[in-house]
Amino acid sequence: MNIMKIFSITTAAVLLCGVSFAQAQKSESSIQLSFSKKTDNSKIVNALVMGKKSGEKFSPAKNAHISFYAKKEKELVLITKSITDGQGKTNALLPKDLPLDTGRYFGITVKLENDSVYENSEEELRLKDVNLAIQLNPHDTARIMTATVTEITADGNVKGVKDVPINFYVQRLFGIMPAAEEHTVNTNEKGEAVFSFPKGIPGDTAGNMTVVARIDDNDMYGTVESQSPCAWGKVVPLEKDPFPREIWGAQAPWGLIITLSILYGGVWFCYFFMFFQLRKIKTEEDLTVNS
């Protein structure tokens, strides 16, 4: 126990030294921001913080303290504070009533300040808030899918946004996959992009899957995405027998079981027959005719 105490004290001392050393020479830092808007209209700002000690390469900054601000006229309003994870990443959910400026733009500023390890730095994001909606008939055999990009003008009207490249995807287990090789369609005057969905993409056991329309990393709008379930996928039936009787399976093939039973059963039958005979030898003791 004593040893452990000394041990932990030493460790603490070493840690303190490390900290004071780090304070003396802070690392350079940089922030990268991206914005995404999901189907449920939630808006998220993702931040990636990189740090760099002098003479080294940039690498993800763990445990950096950063703050997210919204720009309201000329002021910055604090949204939330956060600490980066092991990959130097963190994110913040933006409030619904995000202040917009006259051009329907919103501004987000992210600051890394007063951190013990990293130098201060900040990054700004200015994007336009648009909505993306998709319409499709889930059982339509023609598989036509329409994505519409709209914005709310300053006077409160809804207006289509033209010439926005929209990518069409299907949701897969770990990401979204382009629905076809040519999966980008630009919106027309009405803000609509029409995509005819290809056949043969596997869905689940009933052919269900989720289709995704997305404005990807747009300089003006960020990433805006909208999803919808449909039954346009190819039906992938469940395996009939997921646990077959195989040599590698949990259960042995019948042939093997039968063969082994016959072989070993036969031998053991002989053994038992023998025991039976030997028992008789024992019981015949009295019948001794020593002739």
Binding site: L278, I281, T283, E284, L287
Partner: peptide, 19 residues
Amino acid sequence: IGWTGSKTQWKRLELVMTI
């Protein structure tokens, strides 16, 4: 096992040995 060397015992032993 109670061996006395009787005729039947020898016969049995013979059989068992063969098997």
